[in-house]
């Protein structure tokens, strides 16, 4: 049996405990809903329109930069694991890899695309 079985068991227990807690609260707590209670909370003022608000595209840009660097670190993890036994050649390769990506970051920075406003 691989150790993933235990991770699976952890997922199961991690699911059981919060479900149990919320279930217990569901059993014990009173349930008397009314329209005023169920209104969305906006500091006591009635909500105008639905909750849809236009977001800045800037959120997407940051998520995008994150995605690229996330994938990059995935490449770097096997590299880091073997670094001790691979010698200078591998180190240089990894550094080239990182430098290429830093060029990308520098470009977006230079062009002012990392600014929030």
């Amino acid at each position: 049996m691989s150790s993933w079985v235990y991770v699976g068991l952890f997922l199961l227990v991690g699911l059981i405990i919060p479900v149990g807690a919320i279930g217990a609260a569901w059993v014990l707590a009173p349930k008397k809903p009314n329209p005023i209670k169920q209104m969305t909370y906006e500091c006591g003022i009635e909500t105008v329109g639905d909750s849809w608000v236009q977001f800045k595209a800037q959120y997407y840009i940051f998520a995008l930069v994150f995605l690229i660097f996330d994938v990059e670190t995935v490449f770097l993890f096997p590299w880091a694991v073997k670094l001790n036994s691979l010698g200078m050649f591998a180190v240089i390769e990894g550094i080239i890899f990182i430098l290429i990506l830093i060029v990308g970051l520098a470009y977006t920075w230079r062009k002012g695309m990392l600014e929030w406003v």
């Binding site: 595209a57 997407y60 995008l64 995605l67 690229i68 996330d70 994938v71």
Partner: peptide, 24 residues
Amino acid sequence: TIIVFAVAAAEVAVGLALVISVYR
């Protein structure tokens, strides 16, 4: 598989950027 991850990431990044640009 890892290369496919990279390709998928690139595809999604550019594809969704195009979608947002078209929407705008």
